[in-house]
Simulated scan of single mutants.
Amino acid sequence: MEPAVTDPQAVTRLARRLEPLHSMIYFAPEVGSELAELGITHPRAQYFAQRSAAMGAVGPGVVAATYFNFNPALIARFVPGIWSAASPADVLNARMRAVDGALRRLLGDAVSSRECERASVLARRATEACRPEDRVLYAAHADLPWPDEPHLVLWHAATLLREYRGDGHLHALLGAGLPGLEALILHVSTGRGFLPEFAQASRGWSAEQWGEASAGLRSRGLVDASGSITDEGTALRESIEAETSRLSSAPSASLGADAAELGELAGGLTRTILAAGAFPDGVFATGSERATAAR
């Protein structure tokens, strides 16, 4: 059972400051180059390979279940075929090499700074409070060995914390009666996350599927005719966020007062990678969570 959370917003804020330090890898050219050398060349195949490799040579059903908001038909185009090109172990090694190169490029001198080293210590300590029960993506990554260098320790810890929270978020979404596509549309309707066009295309949904799910959200009063989130939708999202933080509060609670220090350190490092262009234009809406994560 998760410990009590005195400030759920602080839990969310820490997660948002750490998350870009992990997710920059999905946009880093280094990972594309590394996986292409293994024979995995399609950008979507590269994404599915690098994120699911910790689970082993799983099939499309497992990937769809753990990713939640991707069209299963899109996943099935690439999984399990990716494993005929490269083994999960080779993919994981390639990914870590890419993480090393990307963080050295994006952080510059900060990659070997005291701040990065201290953040790595605190973030790793936070992961010690995570429990694996019913947290599939977290548990798979938690089985991987820890790297040695501080910037890689920080990335791995941010990955564990991100997947731990993500697994809990799926529980909250399902509890609120939101399947994957509806959850994705409600997220973009806020104007603070993925741009709708990018979300629909990258997750593999057709215009018809997107329209049908949008109609379902309108019928529940969660979005309006223009596709913008309503007051009811905002209230639902806030309740989901609060439940996600409750389910994912153990790492922050375990740090106590040091959680604030980790947030400050992660915020500074996130500002550095954002300034270095870690995320391309045309992906996130103005005022998105990526842009505000370091605040």
Results as ranks from 00 to 15, higher is better:
M55A: 15
G81S: 04
P3I: 08
A158M: 08
R237V: 08
D109Y: 13
A139W: 02
Y164C: 07
G81K: 09
G168Q: 08
A139I: 04
V121Y: 06
L154N: 04
G180R: 01
L222C: 04
V283G: 03
P88V: 04
A291G: 11
L38N: 03
P72L: 10
Y47Q: 12
V99M: 05
H22N: 03
A259K: 10
W155T: 05
L122K: 05
Q46S: 09
V136E: 14
F48E: 05
S254G: 15
M96G: 04
T190K: 14
Y47H: 12
A36R: 05
D224R: 03
E243Y: 07
E197Y: 01
F70Y: 15
Y67S: 13
A64K: 02
A110G: 07
E261P: 09
D100M: 04
A10V: 06
R165F: 10
W205K: 00
T41H: 06
G180N: 02
D148S: 14
G204E: 00
H169N: 08
S228H: 05
Q50F: 13
E115G: 11
A242Y: 08
L161P: 06
Q50I: 06
A15I: 01
V79A: 09
A98P: 01
A242P: 13
R105E: 05
P150A: 02
G216H: 02
S202D: 10
D109Q: 13
L184G: 03
G211C: 00
E163L: 05
E37Y: 13
Q9F: 12
V283S: 04
G81Y: 04
L173I: 00
P8W: 08
L161W: 06
Y26S: 03
